[in-house]
Structures are given as structure tokens and as C-alpha cells.
Design a binder for these strands. Structure first.
Lengths: 334, 334
DNA sequence: TTGTACGCGTTATCAG
DNA sequence: CTGATAACGCGTACAA
């Protein structure tokens, strides 16, 4: 790594001359500027970012803490974050909590010692269940946090969420009103998350508003969830629509229905919770509630960077990113 | 952020005393040690990592540059990397090249100014096509690189790859020998990548060895790849097996075959290139070649950290991670 | 126009 | 046992 000092020695000038020349300061004569920049280019000089960070006490790095990247929703969000950060010349260091409280704490520890300027976080499942949130309280004193999707109401920070309740409410109502469905099954495997509860409630409200019966399958880490779905459908011939509230069970449901010899969407309508690829791996293409992960990521990063720029305590708020109902082949009117 | 200096002032001792006390040096008396550690805990002191990095000129951070995280293979690899790094107390900063040469260069620029101790990289598609690899040459002078999957033969560094050729060769041979298939279709949408070529060659070798005809569909960014597959199958009634060499077309093929009223695996066997979730979204469950992304990530990180520890130029080599043929429901003998 | 001096927070060496 | 000092690389106020 070539440093200012080395350049200075080679050119027989002082370190600060070199520094100023490289930042194109008008204190420096054109001649020396040229000598300096040329040598710098030749030796491929790059200012040491660590030193800059220490000096300026800002890192231009954002810490991103997510439960997993193998959940396509989070992967999409991370891409959204990346997009904004890139435009603003920020980097990100990603920690994966793996849904574990301990790992989440550890990530905060590592990142909170000056390595990042702020955080974007989706809370681990474990943390939400145990509701041990001291690490959030501590960290939020020192650095700005933006939470998305998996959010902690008791922590005072900016939040970006999907309008989970209304989204599922409207999708359910769509099935009832526009497709005349009367026996709607909801499949859930994220019951214990705040977002999961919201979604289930949206479903319940729509169903109850029309004086229909709720039908819910909870899959918490089943051995063979697809079997369970199939068995349920066999035992409940009356089911004529299905809503799935996570990214994978919708496709499972579709396959189960087809295996039972029923037609989609003629006999049963299906709406999944989706991500961009789900339409490629299903036939007919799955109608989905699109969570807009990319948007969520972009928005989160923008909020954080704004907060960083205007380093005052601006009012903290919760942004709703509205999700879209993308109707494809598993509902009647695509 | 509370610093050593502040602690020193509060305790009326010198900065170096505090520093030593906290690192449990035996130069310091038990009494003062206790005073220091207690105050440090109380004020939640954490050594500033940036300062430590500047001092020690190592960051304990690895730069990970991948084309995308929405490809489940890369997501899996990143999880593998994360696992190893966590055990070794390293962090990672992730840059997403988005398959673009320019973004890849930019990522290197950002990370090469002392922010990371080493790199783990999968080369962008764009870079492989244009074969502009100067940035790799430059960087590999200063910091160790490990490449995985998408690899550049002309760069002298450690590499971790799937045994693409043999993997597909053996899968194809399996279809011919054990399942008596004679008309095997290969579906490819990554023809232009080194890994893609290897896989196609493996297929060709097996087919030609048995004096059969090759059937290949190339899908470079089609509008509706599923339609194309379906049309091909309709036009070629004789096809009795399909191999897909990326993570998504296998499921498309399965759906197309079912839509044409054929039975899987009775009429047609299918083998996809897989990741952990593919069996959940297909029915019957897709037989796959499992690329073992997690293994690849773990191995890459281990190699890099070893290299960093023994900071000599050890011999550079290419590790093969053997992939597995996971037979499920889309081949006859599961 | 150029150079000197200092500080960011830490650690290591050396002196007391 | 404790404290002063220097150094990591950079930027900047101030002096020349």
C-alpha cells in the first residue's frame, strides 16, 4: 500500500503538499499538482480508507442485519439497499442473524464499535419471540437504525413496513367479492412473527365481514408441509380458494391442488405471497401479493442516509410500502 | 462513543494504563485493573475498531463480490462464507456486481483501499464475456483473492469450483444407463459462462459416448422461456429425459411436461440443477444436481483465512467441491 | 505556494 | 506497577 508519506519522499515535498495536490486544492501550484498526480497514478495510490474513517469519524458504511439471505424477500431487500448505497457511495457490511437472538446481539457488538455509521435491520424470529431487545436500546442511542418488515414497536426509530393487514384483507376480499369464493383457506408458517399476525388478521377481518368461516393451517416447521396441505384439502372438499402468506407455501398449495385432480383457477383460486421468481416456477403462473422487497430496501437506505446527513434527531416515523396484487393464472380474471 | 482517553480522565490515570488494564496486562495492579474494568463496563466502552485497524493494519474484514444474491446458489454460498467468518471473528462487506463489469471494478476500487484483508469473488457475467480482467491483476498483487464457481484461469489465485463437467456427465450417463433414456434434452441459459460450457460439454460427452443425438435449447434471456420449452417438447415427441443446468429451468420443464399431459417420471425423467428449496416448489419433487453452495462458501472462506494467517505465498490451487446427484421424484428410481 | 504541527483512538516501547 | 511518547495514514489550521 503506497501512502502519502512515500509519495512525499519520492517527490521531495511534504506530506501535506501531496495531500492538497491530490484534493486539487488551489493552494498548490499547477506544476507540483501535475508532478504529484502523475506519480500517484503511476503508483496506483489510493487514500487509505481506514485512516480517512478515523479522521472523519464516519465510515460511509452501513451495517445490514438480516435473518437470512436464502429467503428471497430478504435477498430482494438487500438488492434494494445496495442500489441506494451505491448511488450514495456507501458500502454495506452484512450480518446474518440466522433468526437467532444470540447471533443478532453478536452482530451488533461487532458493528457497534465504530465500524458503521448506521444500521438497517430486520429483527430475528428468536428475538421477536423472546422479546429481549436490550441490544436495540443500547445501539439506538449511538447510531441511527432503520427497521424493515420485522419491526419492534418499542424501539424508537424509523421503520419501513409492508401494509400487511390491508394487503391480505384486500386480497381476501377480492376472492370473496370478485371471484365469489366462500371457503377460503389460509396457509401460514410465520404465525409467530408480527408480520404473520397482521396478515392473518387481515384475512380474518375480510372473512368475518362476509359472515364466512375461517380456515387456517399453521405449519411451524413441519416435516412434510406439502403432505399436510394435501391431507387438509382432501378432508375439506369445500375449499374453493387458498391464500398463502409466505413465499413458498403458495406454490406447494398449487401443486397439491393439481395433484388432487382439481383445476386452477376454475375449481380453486390461489393467491401466494410472492417474489419475482415465483411465476417462473409455477404453472399456471401464481397470482401473488408482491411485497416489493426492492422498494423496501431502497426506501430504508434512503431514510437512513438522510438521517445521517441531517444529523439531527428528525421526527421518527413508520413508512408503509404498499404491496401490489399481481393477478396471474391462479385466479379467474388475470 | 466513549474512548480510552475519557476513561483515563475519569479515573485520573493515563491512557496507557487504561489500555493495559483492559487487556489484562500483568504490568497493572489488581486494584487499578478492577477500577478500570468496572468503569469500562458501566460506560459500555468498546475499543474503536477503526483505530485498531489503522494500528494493526489488518481489518478482519473480507470483501465478498458476487453477481447477485437473488440467485439462490450465491445466497447459499454467502451463508457458507458467513459461517466460517463468524467462527473466525471476521466480518464481510458484500458488493453486488449485478453481472456488470463496471460495477465489479468499482467494488474493487472501494474495497481495495485498505478496507478489507482479502477477497472472495465470483466473476460477473459481463466480465467473463468481455474478458477485461485488469482489475483482478491489480488487486491480486495487494490482497489475497479466492474465486469460486465463476473463475478466471488467467488469474493466479486460489479457486473453488464445482466439478461441472463430470457432474453433468455422470447425471447424463445415469439417465442413459440406469433409466434407459435415449432422447435427452439439455436446457441451458448460462451458455456464455465458463461453468455453463463445462456442463454442456459433460452432457455432450455422455450422449456421444452412447452414440445418441444431442438436443439442446439455449435460452438467453427469452421473453417467455416456459413457452419455448413447451413448444420444443411438442415438436419433439421423442424426448424422454431432460437435464437443466441452472436453478430455475428444471422446474419450468417439469411444469411444461405436466401441462402436455405426460407423466413424470414414467414418460420423461427430469434432472435439474438445484438448490435446497427446489424440492418444495415442485411436484413430484425434482431430482437435482446439488451444487453444495454452502460447502463452497465455507471452503472458500477457510482457504482465504488460512492464507491470511500464514501470510506467505503458499502454493495456489484449485479445489473441486464434488456435487451430489439427489434423486427424488422426477427420476424413476428415487 | 509550500511546510509544520496536531489530532482521530489505539497499542507498543521505553522510561520512571 | 504506572506514565509519557511515538506511530499507524490522513487532513487541515496555521505558520512561513
Amino acid at each position: 500500500m503506497v501512502t502519502l508519506k512515500e509519495l512525499a519522499k519520492l517527490l521531495n515535498v511534504s506530506v501535506s503538499t501531496v495531500s492538497k495536490a491530490l484534493s486539487d486544492s488551489n493552494e498548490i501550484g499547477e506544476a507540483t499538482k501535475k508532478r504529484v498526480t502523475e506519480l500517484a497514478k503511476e503508483l496506483n495510490y489510493k487514500p487509505n480508507r481506514i485512516a480517512q474513517q478515523l479522521k472523519s469519524s464516519q465510515t460511509k458504511v452501513i451495517g445490514v442485519v438480516v435473518p437470512s439471505l436464502m429467503n428471497p424477500f430478504f435477498a430482494e431487500v438487500v438488492h434494494g439497499i445496495e442500489k441506494t448505497l451505491e448511488e450514495q457511495n456507501y458500502d454495506m457490511t452484512i450480518c446474518i442473524s440466522n433468526e437467532s437472538l444470540e447471533k443478532e446481539k453478536r452482530s451488533f457488538d461487532l458493528l457497534s464499535s465504530g465500524s458503521v455509521d448506521g444500521f438497517i435491520v430486520a429483527v430475528a424470529r428468536d428475538t421477536q419471540i423472546k422479546y429481549d431487545i436490550k441490544h436495540f436500546e443500547i445501539i439506538s442511542k449511538n447510531a441511527p437504525i432503520v427497521m424493515f418488515d420485522r419491526v419492534l414497536n418499542d424501539i424508537d426509530c424509523n421503520k419501513v413496513v409492508v401494509d400487511d393487514f390491508n394487503t391480505v384483507f384486500e386480497a381476501t376480499r377480492y376472492l370473496i367479492q370478485k371471484e365469489s369464493r366462500k371457503h377460503i383457506l389460509l396457509i401460514s408458517n410465520i404465525e409467530e412473527l408480527s408480520v404473520g399476525k397482521q396478515r392473518v388478521n387481515g384475512y380474518k377481518k375480510a372473512v368475518e365481514e362476509h359472515y364466512l368461516k375461517t380456515n387456517i393451517i399453521k405449519l411451524d416447521r413441519e416435516e412434510s408441509p406439502d403432505e399436510l396441505i394435501k391431507n387438509y384439502l382432501e378432508a375439506h372438499e369445500e375449499i374453493d380458494a387458498i391464500i398463502s402468506i409466505d413465499h413458498i407455501t403458495g406454490i406447494m398449495a398449487l401443486n397439491s391442488v393439481k395433484a388432487l385432480g382439481k383445476n386452477v383457477p376454475e375449481d380453486i383460486s390461489i393467491i401466494g405471497f410472492g417474489y419475482v421468481d415465483s411465476e417462473y416456477v409455477s404453472s399456471p403462473k401464481l397470482s401473488i401479493i408482491n411485497q416489493k422487497g426492492f422498494e423496501i430496501g431502497k426506501t430504508s437506505a434512503e431514510i437512513l442516509i438522510n438521517q445521517l446527513a441531517s444529523n439531527s434527531k428528525i421526527e421518527v416515523k413508520t413508512m408503509m410500502v404498499k404491496s401490489e396484487l399481481n393477478l396471474k393464472g391462479t385466479t379467474k380474471k388475470a
